[in-house]
Design a protein around this nucleic acid. Structure first.
Lengths: 239, 239
DNA sequence: ACCTGAACACCGTTCAAGT
DNA sequence: ACCTGAACACCGTTCAAGT
């Protein structure tokens, strides 16, 4: 997020000098690697190779692979935080929706993120700030502290959970490129259609919706239910 | 779930004979190992040792570690399915709540489950049946097929996401037992209290709620918001 | 202060061979 | 049909040593 951060700074001598990194460079390269090859593609050796150094040097910046994933996830959420900095209408529910959608968009294309986003606020400063940011929106609603705590956690849980579920690290064949995403979906749909209609009435009832569905629409529909419930609660309604 | 399944069937000769398993025994032992030592504690060698055989023999039952996790997760969800078999009042919303709570309870004490539950219905028959089961409840509500599809996915996403988030594979110190769960929570709370109140008004607003909160209550509160939104929709309301 | 190379103690997976 | 032992190609992490 700052610092010049040019990895592989070779001195001009021609003789190969020591590589030099920075935390920001390490995280940027880690995110790139994660986006390209998924969580299991991020090995310390592969990352070090991209940075032009040895794997052991990474331990200067992070305590291990786990912290690396935590910080990589947090750096992405830092981007979300910036992107929603100016969101502030006079409708807190609408703002909650905007922020949640921004989070969803960041996570859904990064299957690896689901497992590491917002999981360790002590080590993830941007996650903490994002949680605070969402919570502040609830402070504009006439709720008790407890209700605000619950509402904020519910929104965060729904976003992370749904995005992680949808962006699921797909089966190995898809990752390796043997089978395209579309093909994979078509195959799943065919399998659903082949199920016995007496045993699986619901699956048959919605299989066409499933076949033509868009993850983003589906997420928004669920989010709208949650926010409708929250709004009702803020108006003093009970279910 | 069936089959005699006694691993380590030594012949009485005294000479060590070949081990013999069954898929059910493999999965039961895998779940036990996962519950005791988390996802990273499940190694094929450790599992084989518990079963009294070699790691290579596991490949007769599963295609690899990934499928093993998928099937272990699915076997737990099979238990949930059985436990909710008789749930059927005349209020579908109440039944949805009951089923969701049962799922939550099964997942929250098994941090490893979050990442594998319901992720691959093609390979997870019980997950598919549970999805069907939840969907059938929505068929008792006056909604369109699309709304039912969205509602079902929202409930599942919320349950899995929230449970995974809460039951998070905790930091290494906690797994290893160096730090107790209570101590860990107390530390996190203290960190929150130490934050600048001007920068983090929401955190300060809810820190007491956080300190005394119960995960199950928090889940139910969020679920109630979601279901309240769904009920409103079923009554023809819009947010 | 920051980086390296080599070593250590593991992994999942494969395979020819056994029973 | 089902299990084994040994090997292969990796891992994350540590550490003494370098600059």
């Amino acid at each position: 997020m700052n610092q010049p951060a040019h990895p592989l700074a070779r001195s001009r001598g021609g003789s190969r000098s020591r590589a030099t990194h920075s935390l920001a460079a390490v995280l940027a390269e880690a995110v790139a690697l994660l986006d390209e090859h998924g969580a299991q593609g991020l090995t310390l050796r592969a990352l070090a190779a991209r940075l032009g150094g040895g794997a052991a040097s990474l331990y200067w910046y992070v305590s291990g692979r786990d912290e690396l994933l935590d910080l990589a996830a947090d750096s992405v959420l830092g981007g979300v935080l910036i992107s929603v900095a100016d969101v502030r209408t006079d409708d807190p529910i609408a703002d909650l929706r905007t922020i949640a959608v921004a989070m969803f968009d960041a996570i859904v294309d990064r299957p690896w993120l689901g497992a590491y986003a917002m999981r360790n606020t002590a080590a993830q400063p941007n996650s903490l700030r994002l949680y605070e940011r969402i919570g502040e929106e609830t402070m504009r609603l006439p709720l008790t502290a407890r209700e605000r705590f619950h509402a904020t956690s519910a929104v965060v849980g729904f976003v992370i959970g749904t995005a992680a579920d949808m962006g699921q690290e797909p089966p190995a064949e898809v990752v390796s490129g043997e089978v395209s995403r579309d093909e994979y979906m078509a195959r799943a749909t065919a399998q659903w259609r082949a199920l016995d209609a007496t045993d699986y009435p619901f699956i048959h009832h919605i299989v066409d919706e499933f076949a033509g569905h868009d993850d983003r629409d589906q997420f928004r529909a669920g989010l709208d239910l949650l926010l409708a419930g929250l709004e009702l609660r803020a108006q003093g309604g009970r279910a």
